[in-house]
Amino acid sequence: MSTLLKYTLRIADNSLILGQRMAEWCSKGPTLEEDIAMSNIALDLFGQANGFLEYASKIDGQKTADDLAFKRDASNFYNFCLVEVENGHFGNTMIRSLLFDTFYLLFYKELSKSQDENLSALAFKSLKEIKYHFRHSQNWIIRLGDGTKESNKKVQESLNNLWKYTDEFFEIDNVDQIMIDQKIGVNTSLLKKEWTEIIESTINEAKLIKPSTIKMITGGRDGKHSNKLSSLLKEMQYLPRKYPNAKW
């Protein structure tokens, strides 16, 4: 697999898997208005996934975007471990979103300057969407953190639980290094400072406490996933795999 393909799939897979998780909220939101908001976010994410997968398909030269979404096994998915984490309660979903959105806001901002025109155009379009997602998850975390005692406790627990997935954002491996050297990819290790500042100021306003450093979990970007991802994919890929010759 080419470096550029893997790099593009990593981006696409984050959107696709998180989109799938956000879509699970449909008809289950805490208010009808919020149900609609989460569907909007899921739709943005599927749109992003579609865009990046179309580009991946072009690089691949054989597989279509749908093949890439529906006919790959978990070990060939390269999303962050964070995005496959199950939704849990609404506050848990919003913590997961806040951690991810804050990072992706910074990431897309940089990627929109990529020398690769396709990636830069996709990032530019996605950046507008992620700005809104960030506003949405940030507002909710402030409400829930600074809401009732119960809500504060719930989101604090989620923050503590999900913190271990955040180091993966800033890892640089071979694929990244080659892309950075070609001025295509983003040096995410340089984003950590700003990410930390935004997260800290948000959790301060939300009257939450930053979790202490714990053992981090990474590996998603190389296809090492929890079994949560296989169950997600089993459901998502069920029809195309069961009826391989059918067109839909």
């Binding site: 208010t31 208005e33 919020e34 609609i36 908001a37 909007n40 506003r135 949405h136 507002n139 409400r143």
Partner: peptide, 20 residues
């Protein structure tokens, strides 16, 4: 109209519902 408990939420909910 929309239901919302604060101003920001009202604006966001209006955006999400009425400008799809």
């Amino acid at each position: 109209n929309v239901h919302a408990s604060d101003k920001k939420m009202a604006l966001d909910n209006a955006r999400d519902l009425y400008t799809r």
